[in-house]
Amino acid sequence: MIHARDLARTFKTKAGSVEAVRGLSLDVAEGELVAFLGPNGAGKSTALRMLTTLLPPSSGSASVGGHDVVSDPAAVRRQIGYVGQGTGSGPYHRVRDELVSQGRAQRMSTMAARKRADEMLGMLELDGLADRPCASLSGGQKRRLDVALGLMHTPPILFLDEPSTGLDPHSRANLWDHIARLREASGMTIFLTTHYLDEADTMAERVMVIDHGVMIADDTPARLKADLAGDTIHIRLLCNDQLSHAAEIARNLPDAREATAQGRDLAVTLRDGEAVLPEFIRRLHQSGIEAMSARVVRPTLDDVFLGLTGRSLREAVSA
């Protein structure tokens, strides 16, 4: 459904040129839900704007829905919905009017657009705001309207650039609920970007990690975490003089990557902590080492990013 080969975009600014996206190649199959994850300035929006024909690439090629974004942008636009990172609604226009004109722009009949607009108002909990000028909406309400605008015509391919930024937890949950339901009903392909690690983790079937304009990982959240971060088993020993022996046993566990020891605490990183833990404790016991407590810590996508770049995404995001 979405294919890109060596896609690149350089911006010329007065202070020099910025290589926003450098040689991006990706493939998204029909019906998939993939997420771009990366810190500020990673090139997520730039990549999305190239895929949605809004920005011509400096080099490389991309096709969306079977059409080339450069040679046949009109055909691409007929297949997609796009919710940009900015505010999609015009400040002086009324909420319902914007929804209806968006529907019309997406080739819906006036009747269908009006009906759908009312549906969207209910779905994104914007009822009561229909006749207000968009400028008077709160930040989160504006964002919900942006999403409503993008969903008006139920496109086969939907691009969402940080759809949930600025939404309260209830609205976020509501939004994902509706996107999941829409997807089930229509089988749409969804390509989104997000800063929320938990969101990428739970919602996306596939996460593409992007940093400095290049893709550094592309897999399911589960596999990314298993391969690039792994579980950590933390064990507290009864006596601290057995620590070095215990660390050696830990290093010999199947798939063990690294073991660190401090005081009476031992931490070992490996692929599948829960499955290995009983065996670990049994081996310790056989060597006469007793564990006081044990726990398995599952990795987050932040650990994946940390493992890949040496930087934490949390720091990068808040910085």
Partner: peptide
């Protein structure tokens, strides 16, 4: 200009209009 900066013009440009 206002619409160019806010993103609402971009929204229209992403439609088949």
């Amino acid at each position: 200009t206002e619409e160019l900066m806010s993103g609402s013009f971009e929204r229209l440009l992403a439609t088949p209009m």
